[in-house]
Nucleic acid binder design. Structure first.
Length: 560
RNA sequence: GCGCCUGUAGCUCAGAUGGAUAGAGCAGCGGACUUCUAAUCCGCAGGCCCCGUGUUCGAAUCACGGCAGGCGCGCCA
C-alpha cells in the first residue's frame, strides 16, 4: 500500500460517513494531488470544491463536514486543514514517514511496483522500421519511448510484450535488391544507370562490397529474376543485423520480431480480407478492393488490393492487428512517427470492423526529431540516403545520455537535436547529475563499510532518529515514486520519471552538501545508530534512483 | 483548403486529467570544499504562459476564433 492509498482509505471512510449528512449521489471521484508547496501538506484534495455546485453550499462548509468525519484509527495523520477556497490538506506524522522508509528499504528492487494493470496483457509495438536501411535518429526517439513505456507498464502490473513488426515483403524489398545489385555491378566496372528512386545511401555500397566478397562475379550476368531476390535477401539480412546491433547497443531488446511474411504466407491476409468482405466492410470498385473506412470515422475509403492485384500495406496491417487480438492481448499500443498520424482513423475503423473496441488500440505519436549540427539543419530522407544514423549518435553522444535526452521530453513536443551541442554539453547533461547522485550514494555506503559500520540490515535501524526536516522531506519525495509510476502508466508518459528524478536528486545533493558545512549533518557521524538511520535513507534513495533509471534503460553507476 | 501536433525566462524544456505565489537545466553575474565524490551546493538576475473572446469560485491547462512554426492529406511505404 502506498502512502496515497492509505490516505485514500481514510478519506473514503470519512466521505461515506459525511455523506449521511450531505446526501450526494452519485459521488464524484476522489482525487488527490501533491501540492506544489510543502507548506500545504503532503496531499491535498479538492473534493469539497467539486461538491459545492451540486450541494449549493459554500465549499469550506462542506470541507468542515468531511474533516469532522475523519477517523484516523492507526493515528498516522499529523494535521488536516481546510485552506484557500476549500482545499483539504493532509500531512502525515514524521513517525509515519519513517515507517514508510523502512518499507521502501525492504522492498528494494520491487519498490515502486504497483498493480494498476492487474495482469492485463498489453503489447507495445515500436520502431518497426523497414529493413531497407539503418535506423536514424527519429527511430531512436520512438525506440526509447516504447522501451521505457513497456518497462513502466510491466512495473505497473501489466503483462507486457515488446514487439517489432518487420515489413519484409513488397515492392521495397525488390527495390532494395535492385539497388544493391546495381551497386554490385558498378563495383565490377559495369556501366549502370542508377535510378533516382533506388536507395541512394552509402550503406548500399557497403552491402554490395560484402556481397561481392561472398559471391564473386557469379551474378554479374545472371538473369535479374534470379539475382534481384538473392541480393534482396542478402541485403535485408545484413540491414536487419545492423538494426538489431544498434538496438542492442541502445539497451533495447524485443520479445518478438514479427515478420509480415508470416501473415502473407499463411494466408491470414487473404482470409481476413475475405471475412471483411463477407461483412461488406470490403467491396470492389474500379478493379480494386476497398475498405469502407467511411462507415466509421475516416474521411475516405481505403484501398487494400490494388488494380494490379498487389496488396497495400494497409491490408497487412489489418491482418496483423487482428492477429494481435487473437494472440490474446487486451490492449495494443502502437508507437509511430507523427508523420503517420493520418493513418489513425483508418486503423481505428479497421479495429471496429474486426469487431473489437477501438479503445483497445492506442496509437502514440512521437514527434519528428529534427537534427542540426552547429545550428545548421540537416535534412533527412531515407531515400536520398542523407541522414544521420542512430549509430552515429550512439557513438558521439552515448546510449545513456541519448536515452535520457529523449525521455526528458514529452513525446508530443518536437525535438531539435543539435549534435554538436549534445556533445559539447555532455558534461552538463542532466543524466550525469542523476547518475552522479547514485555514485555518491554508493560511495557513502562503501565508506561506511570501510569504517566498520554494519550496513547489511539497515532496515533494522532506529529510523525515528531521522528528525531533520530535510530528511523527512527526502522520505516524502521517495514515497511519491509509486504515484509517479502510476501517472506514467496512466498517461503513457515516461518523461514524468525524469522530472521526478531531477527533483529528488537535487534535494539529495543539497542534503549531502549541508554535511560539508556542518559535521553534525553528515550521514556518517560519531553516533553509530544515527549513522545507520541515515544510511537507511541513503540506501533507499539509491534504490529509488536505480529503479527509476532501470525503467528508463539508463545505467546506474556505482562510481564515476 | 482540410486535419493532427506545437507555441511558457536569452536558449532547451517541465508544469500531476481546472487549483494555492508559473518551475528546472543551460547560458550570464557573484559566492562555497582540510573531513561521506566540486560531474556538487548557495545567491542574484531574467515572464503579456502567442493574441482575443468565453466557460466558473478559480484557466498556462477547457471551448470558440485568430496568428506563427512543424507534419500529414496516394491504388507509396
Amino acid at each position: 500500500m502506498t502512502a496515497k492509498e492509505i490516505l485514500q482509505d481514510i478519506l473514503q471512510g470519512a466521505l461515506k460517513k459525511a455523506n449521511k449528512k450531505l446526501a450526494v449521489s452519485p459521488f464524484p471521484p476522489l482525487n488527490f494531488e501533491i501540492p506544489k508547496s510543502e507548506a500545504h501538506g503532503d496531499y491535498a484534495t479538492n473534493i469539497a470544491l467539486t461538491l459545492a455546485p451540486k450541494l449549493k453550499q459554500p465549499p469550506r462548509d462542506i470541507a468542515t463536514v468531511i474533516v469532522d468525519s475523519i477517523e484516523d484509527q492507526s493515528s498516522v495523520i499529523d494535521t488536516v486543514s481546510i485552506a484557500g477556497p476549500g482545499f483539504i490538506n493532509f500531512a502525515f506524522k514524521d513517525s509515519f514517514w519513517c515507517g514508510r522508509l523502512r518499507e521502501v528499504h525492504r522492498m528494494g528492487d520491487a519498490f515502486g511496483q504497483i498493480n494498476l494493470g492487474s495482469g492485463q496483457k498489453t503489447q507495445v509495438e515500436f520502431v518497426s522500421a523497414n529493413p531497407t536501411g539503418p535506423l536514424h535518429i527519429g527511430h531512436g526517439r520512438g525506440a526509447v519511448l516504447g522501451d521505457a513505456l513497456a518497462n513502466i507498464l510491466r512495473f505497473s502490473g501489466y503483462e507486457v510484450s515488446k514487439e517489432y513488426y518487420l515489413n519484409d515483403v513488397g515492392n521495397q524489398m525488390n527495390t532494395l535488391g535492385r539497388s544493391v545489385f546495381y551497386r554490385y555491378k558498378e563495383l565490377l566496372h559495369q556501366p549502370v544507370d542508377f535510378p533516382d528512386d533506388y536507395y541512394q545511401g552509402e550503406y548500399i555500397y557497403d552491402i554490395a562490397r560484402r556481397a561481392l566478397a561472398l559471391y564473386g562475379d557469379t551474378y554479374l550476368n545472371a538473369d535479374e529474376e534470379v539475382s534481384i531476390p538473392v541480393f534482396g535477401d542478402y541485403a535485408q539480412k545484413e540491414i536487419l543485423a545492423g538494426i538489431k546491433k544498434d538496438l542492442a547497443d541502445f539497451a533495447i531488446r524485443f520479445d518478438t520480431w514479427f515478420r509480415e511474411k508470416t501473415l502473407v504466407e499463411t494466408g491470414i491476409v487473404d482470409s481476413t480480407i475475405a471475412d471483411l468482405r463477407k461483412n461488406n466492410y470490403i467491396y470492389e470498385k474500379d478493379g480494386a478492393l476497398w475498405f469502407a473506412a467511411t462507415r466509421f470515422e475516416d474521411e475516405k475509403d481505403r484501398v487494400v488490393v490494388r488494380q494490379n492485384g498487389q496488396k497495400t500495406y494497409f491490408a497487412s496491417d489489418i491482418a496483423y492487428h487482428k492477429n494481435k487480438f487473437t494472440r490474446g492481448f487486451d490492449r495494443l499500443i502502437d508507437i509511430w512517427g507523427a508523420d503517420h498520424h493520418g493513418y489513425i482513423p483508418r486503423m481505428k475503423a479497421m479495429v471496429q470492423a474486426l469487431g473489437y473496441d477501438p479503445e483497445r488500440l492506442r496509437i502514440l505519436l512521437v514527434q519528428i526529431v529534427s537534427l542540426s549540427r552547429d545550428g545548421v539543419p540537416i535534412s533527412m530522407s531515407t531515400r536520398s540516403g542523407q541522414f544521420v544514423s542512430l549509430r552515429e549518435v550512439l557513438n558521439e553522444v552515448g546510449s545513456d545520455a541519448s536515452r535520457y535526452f529523449f525521455l526528458m521530453r514529452r513525446p508530443d513536443s518536437p525535438f531539435d537535436f543539435d549534435l554538436e551541442l549534445a556533445k559539447k554539453q555532455s558534461d552538463e547533461n542532466p543524466v550525469y547529475y542523476v547518475q552522479y547522485a547514485h555514485a555518491r550514494l554508493s560511495s557513502i555506503l562503501r565508506v561506511a563499510a570501510e569504517r566498520g559500520i554494519d550496513i547489511s540490515r539497515l532496515d533494522t535501524a532506529d529510523l525515528d532518529l531521522l528528525t531533520n526536516p530535510e530528511e523527512i522531506s527526502l522520505i516524502r519525495k521517495i514515497s511519491h515514486f509509486p504515484d509517479v509510476i502510476e501517472s506514467c502508466a496512466l498517461f503513457l508518459e515516461p518523461h514524468r520519471i525524469t522530472i521526478f528524478l531531477q527533483d529528488l536528486v537535487s534535494s539529495f545533493h543539497r542534503y549531502y552538501h549541508s554535511g560539508k558545512l556542518d559535521a553534525d549533518r553528515r550521514v556518517l557521524t560519531d553516533d553509530e545508530s544515527l549513522s545507520r538511520a541515515r544510511l537507511c535513507l541513503v540506501e533507499s534513495l539509491k534504490i529509488t534512483i536505480k529503479n527509476s533509471l532501470s525503467l528508463l534503460g539508463v545505467s546506474a553507476p556505482e562510481s564515476m
